[in-house]
C-alpha cells in the first residue's frame, strides 16, 4: 500500500467503539506495510459493517460474513 491507500484505510478504522479502534490500529501497525492489494480491498469492505456487527465478527461471536471476507477476518481475529 502507498501512503494514500494506507491513510484512507486508517481513517476507515476510526470507529465508534474503542474495542475496534484498538484491534484495527494494532492490525494496521503489524500488517499494514505488507498487506496485499486484495487483502486491503477485503479489509475496506469488511469495515463497511456497523460497529457492533464488526466487533462480534472480530471476537468470534458471529460468523455472518461473505465468504470472500473470511480470510481477512481470520487475520483480524488472530491479531
Amino acid at each position: 500500500m502507498d501512503r494514500l491507500q494506507h491513510d484512507r484505510l486508517k481513517w476507515k478504522c476510526r470507529r465508534g467503539l474503542l474495542e475496534l479502534d484498538l484491534v484495527l490500529e494494532r492490525f494496521l501497525r503489524r500488517e499494514g506495510k505488507t498487506l496485499s492489494e486484495s487483502d486491503a480491498a477485503a479489509l475496506s469492505e469488511l469495515l463497511e459493517q456497523p460497529d457492533n456487527d464488526l466487533w462480534e465478527l472480530v471476537i468470534g461471536r458471529s460468523d455472518r460474513v461473505d465468504a470472500r471476507l473470511r480470510g481477512i477476518l481470520a487475520q483480524l481475529r488472530a491479531c
Binding site: 481513517w11 465508534g16 467503539l17 456497523p50 460497529d51
Partner: peptide
C-alpha cells in the same frame, strides 16, 4: 462529521 455518522461514539 469526521467519520460516517453511524460510527459516532453514541454507538457505544
Amino acid at each position: 462529521t469526521k467519520v460516517f455518522p453511524t460510527r459516532s461514539h453514541t454507538v457505544a
